[in-house]
């Protein structure tokens, strides 16, 4: 199945700071719950893993990321990825285009358009959950990116370092599974009554 995602997020940092977040592939990956870069092959090739809980099943994908194009001036990046779950039952691919746009001196917008193709067991059995799970993952991802951005902003030379750091929310390396499942259930129940999804 194909999932197309078109999301944007306003960050309370300068565009250059926002861009520094985006171009750091390892850093960005760490914002995605369950994901991590395991190896930097060269400047444009990475290896990584992502573990996703889909209903009662947990799937771990192992794959490769390639930065196809990166333009620090226009602040755009094009990344493609491909992976398979460690049990061999599913495959996934990713095509992501992201851009950081300046909105104001201390504000920028990160927007990304990505196409995720999923095949195999995950698609066959998890299709009903995919939309909600993806939404939730992205919500956490954006929260984490925002937190990182705030952290960067706080650590900027003009700011008072220590108190701001203390105030910045901690980026959760491991996301809260129970809360995550609860949000999905809540969304599902809400959808039965035709209310828009949260998040």
């Amino acid at each position: 199945m194909k999932v197309e995602l078109d999301k944007s997020l306003t960050l309370p940092v300068a565009a250059s700071t926002g861009w520094s977040l985006v171009e750091n592939i390892e850093g960005m990956a760490s914002c995605m719950p369950g994901a991590k870069i395991t190896e930097r092959v060269d400047a444009t090739h990475y290896k990584g893993t992502i573990t996703v809980k889909l209903g009662p099943a947990t799937v771990s994908f192992k794959g490769e990321l390639e930065v196809v194009a990166i333009d620090p001036v226009a602040r755009t990046i094009h990344v493609i990825g491909k992976g398979a779950d460690t049990g061999g039952g599913s495959g996934a691919s990713l095509d992501l285009n992201a851009v950081v746009k300046e909105i104001g001196p201390d504000t920028c917008e990160l927007s990304g358009v990505s196409v995720v193709n999923v095949t195999g067991k995950v698609a066959a059995f998890g299709s009903r959950l995919m939309g909600t799970v993806t939404d939730q993952l992205l919500k956490i991802f954006f929260d984490n990116v925002l937190a990182k951005a705030q952290e960067l902003q706080a650590s900027a030379p003009t700011a008072e370092v220590t108190p701001a750091r203390a105030a910045a929310p901690v980026v959760e390396a491991k996301f809260n599974g129970l809360a995550f499942v609860w949000t999905i259930v809540k969304d599902f129940i809400a959808s039965l009554f035709g209310r828009p999804k949260t998040g």
Binding site: V118, A123, F125
Partner: peptide, 11 residues
């Protein structure tokens, strides 16, 4: 089937 050839009625 979806366009990627995933069979969706398999359970």
């Amino acid at each position: 089937y979806d366009e990627q050839g995933n069979v969706l009625g398999g359970t």
